[in-house]
């Protein structure tokens, strides 16, 4: 844990006991790897990239320059490294926030399924009061801290609890970048996000037009806020979807 505290100091992250405890619990279940080893692995397997819709943010990502890019999934030292890619929906939400900082300025924000943390970091740099980063993947939390460090942004709060279905949200804005890829999970998430919206949170959904969202009945209750053309390199990791959209409940 020593290395972890060092990185925390570098990042300027205050200790947050709830999150710490949760991460330890999860680690026992899914991984025996220490955070410092994880961080070394992340640094070894990724490159820092600004080649996306939000070049303001530098992110540790698996890009075509990394050997894992073309590797079959079983060769990856991380199980399903979703955090290692900047998914189009996340890019759209982040771009939207950076272009419209008033949406998050002075507000409490939840970056749900944050992955690499880009959308939350965008919110933070757009002046959000407090951002809670949430992802069930413990490795994502380490990657997020590295990304926060590169961009000299303070991480105030993070949790690996699965929040889907949790009643009420104290957050004024909820970001959901590219989470709707699995039809079953998308259904649960959309229903929950609609509840959050009804209880007063502004929900921003980023999605490139994946089937799970396009075919969902709740799609009819969404309103498109923005549409972005994706960068050529993003297209390489996102076959079939040349654009990304930001949606909110109308």
């Amino acid at each position: 844990m020593a290395a972890c505290s060092v990185v925390r100091r570098l990042v300027g992250c205050p200790r947050w006991h709830g999150g710490q405890l949760m991460r330890q619990q999860v680690r026992r279940v899914v991984s025996t790897q220490e955070p410092e080893i994880l961080k070394h692995q992340i640094l070894a397997e990724t490159t820092v990239s600004r080649d996306h819709l939000t070049p303001e943010l530098a992110l540790h990502l698996i890009t075509p320059a990394c050997h894992l890019w073309r590797a079959p999934p079983h060769l990856s030292p991380f199980p399903d490294p979703f955090w290692a890619f900047y998914w189009p929906g996340g890019q759209a939400v982040s771009r939207f926030i950076l272009d419209n900082p008033a949406v998050v300025k002075g507000k409490t924000v939840l970056d749900f399924g944050c992955g690499c943390g880009a959308s939350g970091l965008a919110a933070k740099s757009a002046g959000a009061k407090r951002v809670t980063f949430n992802d069930i993947d413990e490795v994502a939390m380490e990657a997020l801290q590295l990304n926060a460090g590169v961009n000299k942004i303070l991480v105030d709060d993070m949790t690996t609890t699965n929040l889907v279905g949790s009643a009420g949200s104290p957050h004024q804005v909820v970001l959901a970048g590219d989470l709707l890829y699995d039809s079953k999970f998308a259904g649960e998430v959309l229903t929950w996000l609609q509840q959050l919206n009804r209880s007063g949170s502004l929900v921003l959904i980023g999605d490139p037009g994946r089937f799970a969202l396009e075919s969902h009945p709740l799609k009819a209750s969404l309103q498109c806020l923005a549409k972005y053309e994706l960068a050529a390199t993003t297209l390489l990791e996102n076959s079939g979807h040349p654009q990304a959209f930001v949606w909110t409940f109308s």
Binding site: I62, P64, L68, W69, R70, A71, P72, P73, S76, D80, P81, F82, A84, F85, Y181, L236, E237, N238, S239
Partner: peptide, 9 residues
């Protein structure tokens, strides 16, 4: 070629 991110999704 199907790359890692595409295989994952």
């Amino acid at each position: 070629y199907a790359t890692l991110p595409n295989i994952m999704k």
